[in-house]
Design a protein around this nucleic acid. Structure first.
Lengths: 144, 144
DNA sequence: TATAATTTCTATTAACATAGTAGAGTATAA
DNA sequence: TTATACTCTACTATGTTAATAGAAATTATA
């Protein structure tokens, strides 16, 4: 798995919206400023997240973005997979990969699957509710 | 972590040499044919593996490649890191990464570190001796 | 109703990485 | 001496990434 800037931005954006869940909508520019992300790039990321059903938007004045479902229903793994693709470290799990005339007896294949499994055990067991709580807590710690 | 074709080829080449440890040297072309890898590309990979101290070579007639140390002393993780770089899924662990004005309080950072740790627990605990044994066993199974 | 604020959509681009190709040079066993 | 093998450097095609640009559509509100 490799996390791109786009994926990184997506996670931060969703977390931002999760922290704002059931409050106001947040505009692209607000998020871009707060997260220090190029606004036009973030715009594209948010559109993609919308198509993925993670966020909703309100157009026009007083518009902005908001989460499409509860933070507790969005897993870290879902978002990163949607934006950056499969978490498997090598494509030999995938169809496109050519280079193994006998994948079924490739000793590496099972290792990469094991890596993917362990990765999944982490990222598919963390919701944005968890993350929002954690950031809140950390912010408090640093504020006090 | 993302494993490139180059990394994939490197692992297969080292395994091939591990299976041949203390027997004859193996030429680039033999390996390229057996592993179905473009010979000129494999050539570069092997040169890199040599610079990394994983393999040795004999030039001229009757030449070829051989392992520089015992298969039991070469870990999967060492080779893949050397060829494909750090296993961390995101560069925010690295210096070059810009985009976190406060990495120390980034909730994602610790997650990616955890992923890297689990990955390391797998790939740094497998030697090419293990792998060579496994391929040998599997080959037998399919031969019988 | 006009306007400012906001999202939406499509295209373009610079830089870099990947995966490979090409060819001339060097060493060595037989 | 020669065939066989590794060595080295350069080149290239393709794709991906991380943006940037600008015009269009929508909507609250003054």
């Amino acid at each position: 798995m490799r996390i791109t800037y786009k994926g990184d931005y997506a996670l931060k954006a969703v977390l931002e919206l999760a922290s704002n869940y059931r409050k106001d909508t947040v505009t692209i520019h607000e998020m871009a400023n707060r997260l220090d992300i190029p606004a036009k790039f973030l715009e594209q990321v948010l559109l993609e997240l919308k198509r993925g059903g993670f966020v909703e938007s309100r157009r026009g004045r007083m518009g902005g973005y908001l989460l499409a479902k509860s933070p507790s229903q969005i897993k870290l793994g879902e978002v990163i997979r949607f934006i950056d693709g499969p978490i498997e470290p090598i494509a030999c799990i995938d169809i496109k990969y050519k280079g193994c005339n006998a994948t079924y007896k490739c000793v590496f294949r099972k290792i990469w699957k094991e890596v993917a499994k362990k990765t999944s055990e982490i990222i598919d067991n963390i919701t944005f509710e968890d993350l929002a709580k954690e950031t809140k807590k950390e912010t408090l710690v640093y504020t006090i």
